[in-house]
């Protein structure tokens, strides 16, 4: 089967994630969209691993998973902290750093 299909699926998922990040205001959903983008990238890497016949792509995907896990932990902790102080999970409320 042509691996291009996997890559294009990966691109589609990436763009959906990107769209979600740009459109959704809920911090959690925005964060999930980022996760979706990371997963799309993982898919691409696993596909390339399959195409090139080496395991390095899978290793990279594995590392992305680990890093994403760390990122989720810290990111969610930040969201909770912000929610505690501002009683809101909207990314638009976190706009003090403007102008």
């Amino acid at each position: 089967m042509n691996p291009n299909a996997y890559i294009i699926l990966s691109a589609i998922l990436l763009c959906i994630g990107l769209f979600g990040f740009m459109v959704r205001r809920n911090a959690l959903i925005a964060f999930m969209s980022v996760e979706l983008m990371l997963n799309a990238a993982n898919l691409a890497m696993v596909t390339f691993s399959h195409v090139h016949g080496g395991l390095d792509g899978q290793i990279a995907a594995f590392f992305v998973m680990v890093v994403a896990a760390a990122e989720v932990v810290v990111g969610l902790a930040i969201i909770i902290t912000i929610f505690r102080t501002r009683q809101s999970a909207s990314v638009d409320d976190e706009n003090l750093l403007k102008h």
Partner: peptide, 18 residues
């Protein structure tokens, strides 16, 4: 999809981790 791409370890890891 990982499983279909000969990546059984990632298949498991994806389910467990994610």
């Amino acid at each position: 999809l990982y499983a279909s791409l000969d990546a059984p370890f990632l298949f498991v890891a994806q389910i467990i981790v994610y």
